[in-house]
Design a protein around this nucleic acid. Structure first.
Length: 705
DNA sequence: AGAAGATAGCTTTTT
DNA sequence: GCTATCTTCT
């Protein structure tokens, strides 16, 4: 096997196959190369069977890429290997073993955050007035599952939480559902409860590799520790500079814990950066140095010098967008292709303005992440219909589609049906024949069952993609779309469904199994799929959040919207949170190979209000000698001075008279002080990131404090 | 039941 | 400024 492309440390990381190894791999230090080479080495040189290796990453894309690279190096098909995300791994294992933990069955359905929120909403709706909003509650539930030291101080809120939590868990259990967090939790539960099962997998996975180790949380760490306890051949790769998932429970302490838990851990440092120019790397080091609690480490590079990162101070977000578009055109004229270029930002909503303008400029672009294809309503509807065809007892899918298209089946009818189902221990679907009653709803139920039954009876007669067309026609879904939506929207949704059909086509051609078996396999893990799985990177500019950009690299990177309140986000306050934001900034900078552009706006529309912005503290912190300052802008660009207009103003119910000097609270901007008054128009100074605004004193969002 | 109109809530970050 | 959800009217 050819290992000549590796440096000394990389080689050591590949060849130290026995015992615990921890690699601290800085940005651009060849981490993926080490991982794939090591796996290939295990298989190709040491003759380890494919099945005895487990590699875990954080994104499907990273997993797929690893498999592809291994396939190439060894000239084998690595598709079936245990190389996946933590969640996919858990799901795969649970499909094999969860039958041991009734009432769950291996046909469990995985629900995404949206579904989960919907369930929480349903539960809370019946509980009346509550302290916590459903969204908050959903957050708390996830936190309680991921943070071992989770606690709610306030006793009322705590009892409320436990009530909802218990109902939520019961509901999931009853319907054979697992949320994302459950995938990991149930896997640990299974392995702990059934030592013989644990034994099997400990024996099986002789070599375990964990990517992005700095982002593992306590549960994920526990899972890996359980599995590796026998062979102790565990290899973890991480970079504490790039730890950006503390909000999801990631524990940097795992790095220290690992060395304590696995005695004799070999520590390997990869400190040479092969990616970026010296100027870019200098800036990255200059940023991260402001994190006092960071373990000191300096990446070095033997790469050539390039140009200094450029910084641009824009008047408005429109101005910022135009600057970026102009620069992209220049870069392409200079010979770069669109796919060399990425626009990166802290929060997804920033992409909107860029999309519009890129389209106008005819610059091809692709949004990386954002709303997942599989979380679109029409796709979820199709999946639910398919699931119901295969699994009649899937109550969750049943509820999603029974009245979609409308069949006159409302809540009261469903409640009655549920009662019947519970009494005779049937699924909602099987309870339909026992539903006594007449009227639209009753006949709607019967009609629904007839349609599903008839499609089910002929399911093997079609190719899988054609099955979707049958569903669209027979259920009336297509007609309903055209009836209730604008034509454009309907076409759009049907296009998405068409894309979904192509996924079914792939599944169809993969095996000679029956349609039912094929669907059982496919439907299992659709919830875990994301947009970015297929990297058919054509020639497009990539728009992405910093989080999603991790692990990627681009020749030219634009970091946009570097403003206080956006980046760092206004939600981050504590020192620890700010330090995480700074690491996000580090991740952004180190994505760039050749050219880096930083921009910020002095004005931005936030929640529909024109807002004064100030540059990000991360910009302030940068040593200006490392930057090429481009902030010459002649005149403010038009398009910005649109008057603030509210469609409706409602009389506020408190008749407080608001005067200059009064404290007020605005729903979106928080507390502020009235600095001027002109009739009913007050001028309020809010927190720095929201600046000074003119508002109507009787606007419902305003309250006197 | 369903269209039209009004309003609240929203923007972290992801599997 | 956008969108999901609630309210009101037919």
């Amino acid at each position: 096997m050819d290992l000549s492309g590796l440096n000394k440390s990389q080689l050591e990381a590949v060849k130290t196959t026995e015992g615990p190894v921890m690699v601290m791999a800085g940005a651009g230090s060849g981490k993926t190369k080490v991982l794939t080479t090591r796996i290939s080495y295990l298989i190709g040189e040491l003759g380890v069977p494919l099945d005895n290796i487990l590699a875990v990453t954080f994104t499907n894309k990273a997993a797929n890429e690893m498999k592809e690279r291994i396939s190439k190096i060894l000239n084998i098909n690595a598709k079936g290997m245990w190389v996946s995300t933590f969640h996919s791994f858990s799901s795969r294992l649970l499909r094999l073993e969860i039958d041991k933990m009734p009432p769950y069955t291996k046909y469990f359905n995985i629900i995404d955050d949206d579904d989960s929120l919907k369930i929480v909403k349903e539960i809370m709706k019946e509980m009346g007035d509550l302290y916590t909003s459903p969204k908050e509650m959903r957050n708390l539930i996830s936190k309680s599952k991921n943070f071992l030291d989770f606690k709610i101080k306030d006793i009322d809120r705590r009892t409320e939480f436990h009530k909802v939590f218990d109902l939520y868990e019961a509901r999931l259990k009853k319907d054979n559902l697992l949320d994302f967090d459950d995938l990991i939790i149930k896997t640990i539960e299974l392995l702990t409860k059934f030592p013989n099962v644990l034994e099997i997998y400990q024996h099986k996975f002789q070599y375990i590799l964990v990517d992005e180790f700095q982002d593992t949380n306590e549960l994920q760490y526990k899972l890996m520790r359980l599995l590796s306890a026998k062979h102790k051949n565990i290899f973890v790769v991480g970079d504490d500079f790039q730890s950006i998932y503390a909000f999801r429970g990631a524990k940097l302490e795992n790095i220290n814990k690992f060395q304590r838990d696995f005695i004799g851990t070999k520590l390997i440092l990869l400190e040479q950066n092969y990616r970026s120019t010296k100027e870019i790397l200098n800036l990255a080091n200059n940023v991260i140095i402001n994190n006092p609690n960071q373990i000191k480490k300096t990446m070095f590079s033997e790469n050539n010098f390039g140009s200094k990162p450029k910084i641009y101070s824009a008047y408005s977000s429109y101005d910022e967008i135009m600057y970026v578009c102009d620069k992209i055109k220049e870069l392409v004229l200079d010979g770069d292709s669109y796919s060399d270029i990425a626009i990166m930002y802290r929060a997804n909503h920033i992409s909107r303005g860029f999309e519009e303008q890129l389209m106008k400029y005819r610059i091809p672009y692709k949004i990386y992440g954002g709303l997942s294809f599989f979380s679109r309503a029409e796709i979820k509807d199709m999946i639910a219909y398919l699931r119901l065809l295969i699994f009649n007892d899937d109550n969750f899918s049943f509820k999603r589609v029974v009245n979609n298209p409308k069949r006159g089946i409302g809540k009261s009818i469903l409640d009655k049906l549920e009662l019947i189902a519970n009494e005779s221990n049937l699924s909602l679907y099987d309870a339909i024949p026992y539903y006594k009653g007449k009227g639209q709803g009753a006949s709607g139920l019967v009609e629904f069952k007839t349609i599903i039954d008839s499609i089910k009876a002929t399911i093997e007669n079609y190719k899988l993609p054609d099955l979707i067309d049958v569903l669209l026609d027979e259920t009336g879904y297509k007609d309903e779309l055209y009836r209730t939506e604008d034509e454009e929207v309907a076409e759009d949704k049907l296009n998405n469904i068409k894309e979904f059909k192509s996924i079914l086509k792939d599944t169809d051609e993969e095996s000679l199994d029956s349609n039912v078996i094929k669907l059982q396999g496919l439907l299992g893990d659709l919830a875990l799929r994301t947009n970015n799985d297929d990297n058919n990177d054509g020639n497009s500019v990539i728009l992405t959040t910093y989080h999603q950009a991790k692990g990627l690299e681009f020749k030219d990177v634009f970091m946009v919207a570097n403003e206080e309140g956006i980046f760092p986000s206004s939600n981050t306050v504590t020192d620890e949170e700010i330090e995480e934001e700074r690491r996000i900034c580090y991740v952004g900078i180190t994505r760039a190979k050749k050219r880096l552009f930083l921009t910020y706006c002095n004005h931005r529309r936030i929640f529909g209000y024109d807002t004064d912005m100030s540059p990000s503290r991360f910009i302030d912190e940068m040593d200006k000698s490392l930057l090429d300052d481009n902030k010459v802008r002649k005149a403010p660009v038009v398009n910005y001075n649109k008057p603030i207009e509210k469609k409706t103003v409602v009389e506020s119910n408190n008749n407080d008279i608001i005067n200059v000097g009064d404290k007020v609270n605005h729903k979106s901007f928080g507390d502020g002080v009235v600095v001027a008054k002109d009739g009913m128009v007050i001028t309020v100074a809010f927190k720095a990131e929201f600046g000074i605004k003119k508002l109507k004193a009787d606007h419902p969002s305003i309250r006197k404090r």
